[in-house]
């Protein structure tokens, strides 16, 4: 059980999801938020790793992260149009999402432990 929770936590904190259009298996709708770190391939044969700084109607705004496979230096601001995206992978959800996940797993873990161990002994105050 502890191993399962540890794996769930690790997987939850570094989930990689893929969105790559309608002629591939495993495509899924992904919800991105500012703070997410993503890897993308554009239709112009480019690769980027970005920390999303803004979600806009026409595309994503993000700060580049040093990634050997990309060749783009880190710390630059990019705007990538949705229509140019060929593949997106979420490398790391934002810290807020991870904190929420950790909190919910902790609460669930505490509930499971409480059910398994039974009620805690109550100390009666002696007058």
């Amino acid at each position: 059980m502890p191993l399962f929770i540890a794996i769930t936590l690790i997987a939850g904190c570094s989930t990689i999801r893929t969105d790559s259009g309608d002629m591939t298996h495993g495509s899924s709708e992904i919800k991105l938020t500012a703070g997410d770190r993503i890897k993308i391939i554009t239709r112009q044969r480019e690769r980027f790793m970005l920390d999303i700084t803004g979600i806009q109607p026409e595309g994503l705004r993000g700060e580049s992260v040093q990634w050997d496979a990309s060749g783009v230096p880190g710390g630059l601001e990019f705007f990538v149009a949705y229509r140019d995206l060929a593949l997106i992978q979420v490398e790391k959800p934002s810290a807020l999402k991870t904190a929420g996940l950790v909190a919910s797993v902790t609460v669930i873990g505490a509930m499971v432990a409480a059910i398994a161990v039974g009620p805690a002994p109550v100390m009666m105050a002696v007058p």
Binding site: M23, H25, G26, K39, D68, A69
Partner: peptide
Amino acid sequence: TKSGLIYPTFRLS
């Protein structure tokens, strides 16, 4: 992979 990317499979229909 070198890039750490996980590639999808393609659907030929």
